[in-house]
Write a protein that binds this DNA or RNA. Structure first.
Lengths: 340, 340
DNA sequence: ACAGAACGAGACAGCGATGACACTAGCACT
DNA sequence: AGTGCTAGTGTCATCGCTGTCTCGTTCTGT
């Protein structure tokens, strides 16, 4: 088993009878090289299976990075990986490779992987911020590594960001329920202290207020307990003396939990989820949908722009949501319930 | 806005009043350095926000890569990204970063991204092979970049691989249906010419044969048409003069399509899917389940081993599947059908 | 007290590539 | 003939870092 070593520019140069610089020229195509020299070089390169070393190249060229890092909570969450897919596609278009790193949604994890990625000299850092504070990246930004926050704006850090119209989405969903006659509308989410949920709850309350309904703490289940299952939260809610006639689930996990909990009920409450999910149509679940892939694409595009022009103004992008009616959100309140 | 440049070893050395090599020693911890020198260096490094350049480091150290590449069809497929999640976790444990690249399941895409990744000098290449032939990577393998094939073995290439017990899984599912009294069992998949499906179909036929049932081409819908929707294929199948009493769906897409197609039927056929999916329990769909995350982990572990020891024997790993009963696969054939 | 080990730190080269600059040959023009 | 240009190529230094070698200092044992 011949364990050879990888050929370098010099090996190719020697075989082709030219200088290393000329081989470099052939590959970078920035300079003129005589056609037959090109041919000699190319054939030598092919014979040696030469492949330019991008690491050495970007070192020499002074940091022109070829990779971009994406810091996400975990790859198993459909929302996250759909964003990742969008990022990957957009970056591929511009010739960048994507390094993904997961944090398990922990603050230490975030700092740790950010550190690793920066040591890898990624050209930009895309992230779904977890911690309360991303100021530890401010220095890096000044050193020329742009940071793009996705889904939640970064805290204490100058960074571009791409977020959803969370308030408007929740507002619209709540209004839709109200217009069907619902007055007792629950909002359930877990975790609740993240930016997106805070925004959505605000939209939810605003919609209630606009209809003259006082928000009722009984129907706001804003949890921050990774251990508690959404399903049991919903079950618990539905055995109270006074039950809501409609539920808004703050994210897809809670929504699926709510589906599980209410599937067998004789008169299930109306249900609207936030975030679309694969089998939502099969299950007939109405949701506040949006386009996570597009979020990723936009974020990647911002990153590419920032790498080219580090000194532009930072951009805050808000992407729209839209209510997708599939049945579960259009159920009217049960008669006995609607007249309390 | 002060656009500074990133500090290097030399900058730190100058500020700390030592040589660059000593700073290097402090960071690599392979050599002895006096405690107060360490402290001086560290404080200088912190002041300059120094962060060692891993690219330069691995260049100098001669290729000791810090990244591993994963070539996948597309990030949107739940199976693929779950594998990716497993890979990422395992790699993180060993200090490698993961670069993901997608091919849109095209052969050219595969070759293109493999090229990019190899130029990035990834330490290993993990891939879900698409093409008929991965021999173009043989040279790279000899040059020291191990290749690990996932889900499907590589063709014409010495590579470790991690695959599922496809035949056994399909065999078990088919036998289970037979034992409930089914005789007319359809197998639907798209695409059909990939390794996994060929194996599964083989298992399916073997099970039929073992029960003395002749395979019937009417009930094998082996498509290779990305455009045709699984749902319509199933609908079409169910309006034939003679309908099957049970369906095996070759992958999760087909399975979800089958669910859509049969949901409203008064007497739906029994249904078993291949690959588990998020809401399968809610929908009561029996599946041949397996553990894609574990596949990713195992593949990553193999990659790490190979990077450490390039000359071991190649390993072929086969991971088990298991039949998960949730109702849809346990339906007995309709009476009028079972006695034909 | 002195040889030899052990420790701590610097000088230098070089990983694989490219930017800056220099140089030659050939041609067109005055 | 002399000048200026261009096309095509080579030399050298260097990107940020570390392996190897070297050297001065302190410590150890007899």
């Amino acid at each position: 088993m011949a364990v050879q070593t990888r050929a370098t520019l010099h090996d190719v140069a020697r075989l082709a009878g030219v200088s290393a610089k000329t081989v470099s020229r052939v590959y970078s195509q920035r300079d003129l090289v005589a056609p037959d020299t090109v041919e000699r070089v190319m054939s030598a390169a092919k014979r040696l299976r030469f492949r330019p070393n991008l690491l050495a190249q970007s070192l020499r060229r002074g940091g022109g990075a070829t990779t971009v890092g994406f810091i996400m909570g975990e790859l198993l969450n459909p929302f996250y990986y759909t964003v990742a897919a969008g990022i990957e596609r957009e970056l591929a278009l511009h010739g960048f490779a994507l390094i993904v790193a997961t944090t398990d949604d922990s603050v230490e994890g975030e700092a740790r992987v950010a550190d690793t990625l920066l040591s890898q000299r990624v050209g930009a850092l895309l992230m779904i911020p977890v911690g309360e504070d991303q100021s530890y990246l401010e220095g890096e930004r000044q050193l020329g590594t742009p940071v793009i926050a996705i889904d939640r704006p970064a805290r204490d850090l100058v960074a571009d960001s791409v977020v959803l119209a969370n308030r408007a989405g929740a507002y619209e969903a709540t209004r839709a329920l109200i217009s069907r006659g619902h007055r007792r509308i629950a909002y359930i989410c877990n975790p609740a202290s993240v930016y997106t949920q805070v925004e959505r709850v605000t939209g939810y309350r605003a919609a209630l207020a606009s209809a003259g309904i006082d928000p009722d703490p009984r129907w706001e289940r804003l949890l921050d307990d990774p251990a508690s299952s959404p399903e049991s939260v919903v079950r618990d809610l539905m055995v109270q003396p006074s039950v809501p006639t409609a539920i808004i689930a703050g994210n897809n996990r809670v929504c699926i939990g709510a589906v599980r909990a209410t599937l067998e009920m004789p008169a299930p409450p109306a249900l609207i989820g936030f975030d679309d999910f694969e089998t939502a149509d099969v299950l007939g679940i109405s949701v506040v949908g949006h386009d996570p892939m597009e979020m990723g694409r936009r974020a990647a595009r911002l990153a590419v722009e920032r790498m080219r022009d580090p000194i532009g103004f930072t951009t805050q992008l808000e992407l729209p949501t839209r209510l997708i009616a599939r049945g579960s959100g259009e159920r009217a309140p049960a008669l006995s319930e609607s007249s309390r």
